[in-house]
């Protein structure tokens, strides 16, 4: 048990990062090996200029406005989940460094920084998690059940598990930011530092599940992080 934990703390993180970026690069490489389709598959209306079409694709990608028009409920679920995820990711910057500039600008002390992080982090986490349960429940509803395959459940459950272990640290512990900084700086510089004790037992689970996600990410449907804009540009070619 201790060995496994050791591997997840000090060895697997490197593999996870390598597989994540290498995998996504490989995915794109595999796409580029395929022949281009010999025609235009535009969907109309679409902007005239090339730049206009790219902007339209990006705006649609970040707002999902097309989905909002045809399925507001799914839009709410999907959009809020992704938005929460974005906020959560931004918040995780604090694991590696800190928003020193922002704190200085607001002239906030340690106490205020901490309160702000707790409130904002909890809101972001909630925005991320609640829609995940909705998306999971949907998997059994109506015609969506015909489309649901093991991967869908795996990904949703994995994300939910990551979120819940995160909440455990957020709500039941008071994590010392300095401890986290020391630990991650150690990983980055190959001068390993002790595990952040203040995070409690959930930390290993959270950290390990994120590594699982990173390794899985490029090989399943989550590759939509890159493919979505490519596919949208096909429809605007």
């Amino acid at each position: 048990m201790a060995t496994i934990a050791f591997l997840f703390y000090y060895v697997f993180p490197y593999i996870a990062v390598a597989v994540f970026f290498g995998g996504l690069a490989y995915r794109v490489y595999r796409w580029w090996q395929k022949k281009l389709a010999p025609a235009r598959f535009s969907l109309f209306p679409r902007p005239q200029s090339r730049l206009g079409r790219l902007l339209d694709a990006l705006v649609d990608m970040f707002t999902l406005k097309g989905l909002l028009r045809v399925n507001p409920l799914l839009w709410a679920g999907g959009f809020i989940m992704h938005l929460g995820l974005l906020f959560v990711l931004v918040g995780h910057v604090r694991a590696f460094t800190d928003f020193y500039f922002l704190w200085k600008l607001l002239n906030w002390g340690k106490e205020q920084q901490h309160t702000f992080s707790a409130v904002a982090g909890t809101i972001a986490g909630t925005l991320f998690t609640i829609p995940l349960f909705y998306l999971l429940a949907r998997r059994w509803s109506g015609a969506v059940k015909w489309l649901s395959v093991p991967e869908d459940f795996f990904v949703l459950l994995l994300l939910i598990s990551i979120a819940l272990t995160g909440f455990h640290m957020r709500l039941l512990r008071t994590v010392e930011v300095e401890e986290l900084h020391r630990f991650f700086a150690g990983l980055a510089s190959f001068r390993w530092q002790p595990v952040p004790e203040s995070a409690g037992p959930a930390f290993i689970w959270h950290f390990a599940l994120v590594q699982v996600l990173m390794v899985y990410f490029p090989f399943g449907k989550l590759s939509h992080i890159i493919g979505s804009v490519l596919s949208k540009m096909v429809a605007r070619s």
Partner: peptide, 15 residues
């Protein structure tokens, strides 16, 4: 072709 490969890989089966 390339688009068909994107489609197969990225469909999230959202319905």
């Amino acid at each position: 072709t390339r688009p068909l490969q994107y489609y197969q890989d990225i469909c999230v089966r959202c319905g």
